[in-house]
Design a protein around this nucleic acid. Sequence first.
DNA 1: TCTGCGCCTTGATGCGGATCAAGGCTGCCG
DNA 2: CGGCAGCCTTGATCCGCATCAAGGCGCAGA
Lengths: 222, 222
Amino acid sequence: MALAHDYTDVQYLPAPPKAADTATGLFRLSVSMTFAKDEEIYGQDEDADLIYRVLDGAVRTTRVMADGRRQIGDFYLAGDIFGLEAGPAHRFAAEAVRDSVILVIKASTLRSSGGDVGRLGWEATRRELERAQEHVIMLGRKTACERVASFLKDLSDKSGDLRVVDLPMGRQDIADYLGLTIETVSRMLSQLQASRIVSFCAIRQFRIVNPAGLARLANQTL
Amino acid sequence: MALAHDYTDVQYLPAPPKAADTATGLFRLSVSMTFAKDEEIYGQDEDADLIYRVLDGAVRTTRVMADGRRQIGDFYLAGDIFGLEAGPAHRFAAEAVRDSVILVIKASTLRSSGGDVGRLGWEATRRELERAQEHVIMLGRKTACERVASFLKDLSDKSGDLRVVDLPMGRQDIADYLGLTIETVSRMLSQLQASRIVSFCAIRQFRIVNPAGLARLANQTL
DNA sequence: TCTGCGCCTTGATGCGGATCAAGGCTGCCG
DNA sequence: CGGCAGCCTTGATCCGCATCAAGGCGCAGA
């Protein structure tokens, strides 16, 4: 990550675009950076001195085993905070899923501040934990079909638009998030479309035709 | 959970036994409770007003799907803190793996206190997150053999004794933690013993014969 | 417009772990 | 000491997903 070459500004920024969460205040004094598709934002084992927020685009956190097996920890879309999934060093790398604009703040600023700001960091960490735990359920006990259905449902729950949902990531990323292969993901998507649960308008955009059916297949426990 | 029937004391307790962590201070004003094997400590969806610490025994957090599939979120041994894996309500239930003594503290006490104490809560949450993320890697991309090897290695890393390690939980609990069946866990344990990696002295106690071999099979990425 | 490449889909086959089934071991209680 | 119940192991078979293989589709650049 080259800190100097592409930062655009250091300033008091206006409130970020999708300010529907509690953490907006944390990012007032921050640097905005742009990353190209597949560019690394930080590496596995790198020092975790910074905390990040997606302004525009999408980010994935990944871990690669010695033999090349890859697991995606999570995806982050506009408004999401990432990078606090660590102790002193990052345990996952972070990469831009597509061209993205990211706000960056020093972690030490956040950690040292008491009261409200510190509590917001804790809240954000707790949300991360909840998502990781849902992910554990998914990978431990759900079938391929249930995983893909859960994934589409989660994505639609996050996106504001109730009609049409965008998939910012490719099939391989979905597979590596769900602990499946690209072929299985593709087959499940075809199957969901064939059974009139969802309908793909484009390769990375779908409508939910039967929300109740999707929820049933997703088999959420909470 | 019956708060009244089995608490033993409300007092300033002496430092807990294995005080090798930073969180000891949090539990000075706490209630000690005992739970029988398989007794519920708190339920899924229950309010998360309390935080817990294992004094003696072992605890599991579980989530059960509508059709009975069960996933164990994590195990907690003497000295471990649990119960902060939640927003307003618990997303997993907690149960005693065997007869256990648990210290309990009001979460609100912890959350409202600023400075050091609040930060310790955050640290504990972050450790939980790290463990959940390792669990995701395991369930998403490791084979049955790698999962069992990782499990035994983790347990031995946690236990002080380098020679002999106790398994506090039964095979079914291990299976539900690793996203496998009891039969597969049993087969992998037999296989590890046959290949002289570990050796079982009793059904729930083993020695690591070949630590390097175990580490290789575990395939840890960090 | 044509061509090539990246990404996706679909089909055929194989394998790892689930499921089904049958005992064995151990500890408890008569 | 014998019988029973819970837990664990082992074997046989099955199935869901991985792997291997072969195109299809769409976009970018000549």
